[in-house]
Amino acid sequence: MSSYLEFEKPLAEIEAKAAELRAMARASEDDVDIEKEAGALDQKAAGMLAELYSTLTPWRKCQVARHPERPHCQDYINALFTEYTPLAGDRNFADDHAVMGGLARLGGVPVVVLGQEKGNDTKSRIARNFGMARPEGYRKAIRLMDLADRFGLPLITLVDTPGAYPGKGAEERGQSEAIARSTEKCLTIKSPVISVIIGEGGSGGAVAFATANKVMMLEHSIYSVITPEGCASILWKDAEKMREAAEAMRLTAQNLHELGVIDHIIAEPTGGAQRDRDATIAAVGVALDDELKKLMKQAKGDKLMKARRKKFLEIGAKGLAA
């Protein structure tokens, strides 16, 4: 762990103290026993971490969901899938690097995997446009979804995007139409569709990938119609009211599960996915395997397509009372 979030500052101080103590002991010529003291600090830090992460406010969840060291789409694909063969381009205008995907095997089963990738350093973040797709990204996704449908391959999407890119060219090339067609395509696929929201599920850009039979969310990921900052600037006329907006919007995995918008929450390690990337990726792998097996058993004719449509038609019927 190298970067701490703002609310983790007290924790950072304790961990730094423990590290300092150990460094001092190593540097010192005498054989000083500091392990007891350092161990106590470790314990205090662990307790604080558990406490912090069991009581995350919605705004803190947003910060965790956006943490730069959270595993990204690429990490999941590399670790969980074999024979990954990236496929590129929308056959129309360009290849959008905010969207990655292709053919791969999950537990031996050939699938189409698709997701938004935010990048992990300045260079790759710019190349990936911070995970904000342009129309060509959605049109590439549609191509891959179509491939899944025609060859009866399950579609797995990994959602992590602040939203669709708001740019001049994106608008001119039909950003809204591309998103609408992508959602539409999700609803016509006859094979199983599974989505995992691994970080940020930002608005239309997310739903265009997440109109699935099973929608799962990592414990500290978020899924919302607009960013809390955007909501705050519209309703509070002040983008700084994002804490209030995050609260009101019900964008946490726990709220969305209550509302019946998502099907399953995948637990994260204590301290969030960024503290134990491998364990997080493995947990997603287990959940994907499990859902894939279940859905493949039900995949007959257009049964799953019909079930998907019915599921979405019924969402929201009960509100929070659900």
């Binding site: 998103i179 609803l187 739903v207 119609v225 919007m249």
Partner: peptide, 16 residues
């Protein structure tokens, strides 16, 4: 805005 995620869910619902 006041219907949050349920507003977003109208995108797939109306597409159906």
């Amino acid at each position: 805005m006041q219907e949050g995620i349920l507003s977003l869910m109208q995108m797939p619902r109306t597409t159906v």
